[in-house]
């Protein structure tokens, strides 16, 4: 008897949406996130890449040609991407280091931009894929949907080479700046709030680490 009551109560309860459907996501971003990443990073054979938590790491790997040794794909430790890129860039001053991260992860540790700004390593290039949503947790609007401007935060943190990219026609120029700036460069790409295409990859952080370290050491020779 009690069982029946519980069942019918569950039926009557309003359904909770756990993921905002694509049709209901409103973002100022229209760029295709994968295509934008591919064009911003360009040729990736000889660069080092940190892929930020959630969709950003898939786009980073997508731009790098898959689960490659020189792209470390983060699946946790939210907020780590930019500082990890900084440590890597300081350790490898003759190599280009790309950080590909989402605006949600960057917002968790926007102070890192100040840490980077005062050192300003010229081989560090940060690409923020800003869809104005926390996609991984069900597409709740992020702060950038509500007036927060990450380019201004980066500029205020002392990073001089910055760009906000909203149109495809602006991608090539931003890509050039990411490669040629004489200080750290920072690009926010306003991308559409679509689900990133997943890239099959190892989720063993230790294995990824060892593969990355071995590869970079071999490149040096």
């Amino acid at each position: 008897m009690a069982k029946t009551t519980t069942k019918s109560a569950a039926k009557a309860a309003p359904k909770t949406k756990t993921v905002t459907p694509v049709s209901e996501r409103k973002s100022s971003g229209h760029l295709d996130r994968r295509q934008a990443t591919i064009r911003l990073l360009g040729k990736t054979d000889d660069v080092l890449i940190i892929g930020g938590i959630a969709g950003a790491k898939d786009d980073a790997m997508g731009a790098a040609g898959g689960d490659v040794a020189h792209c470390y794909a983060l699946g946790g430790a939210m907020g780590a991407a930019c500082a990890m890129g900084l440590g890597l860039a300081l350790a490898q001053p003759t190599r280009r280091v790309f950080v590909v991260t989402g605006e949600g992860e960057l917002l968790m540790n926007s102070g890192t931009l100040a840490t980077i700004g005062v050192l300003n390593p010229p081989n560090l290039s940060i690409v923020v894929l800003d869809n104005e949503y926390y996609g991984e947790t069900g597409y709740q609007p992020s702060h950038t949907a509500r007036g927060v401007d990450l380019v201004k935060i980066a500029e205020g943190s002392g990073i001089k080479a910055t760009r906000m990219v909203t149109k495809e026609s602006e991608l090539d120029d931003a890509a050039r700046m990411l490669r040629q700036s004489n200080g750290t460069s920072f690009v926010v790409a306003k991308v559409a709030p679509t689900d990133p295409e997943r890239v099959p990859h190892s989720r063993d952080g230790n294995w990824q680490r060892q593969r990355f370290v071995r590869t970079v050491a071999a490149w040096k020779k």
Binding site: A80, A81, A83, G87, A89, A91, V213, V216
Partner: peptide, 16 residues
């Protein structure tokens, strides 16, 4: 300090 944890790990990836 949390930046520091990530920085140490990034440095290791680069052999430092």
């Amino acid at each position: 300090e949390e930046e520091g944890v990530a920085l140490v790990c990034g440095a290791h990836l680069g052999g430092a």
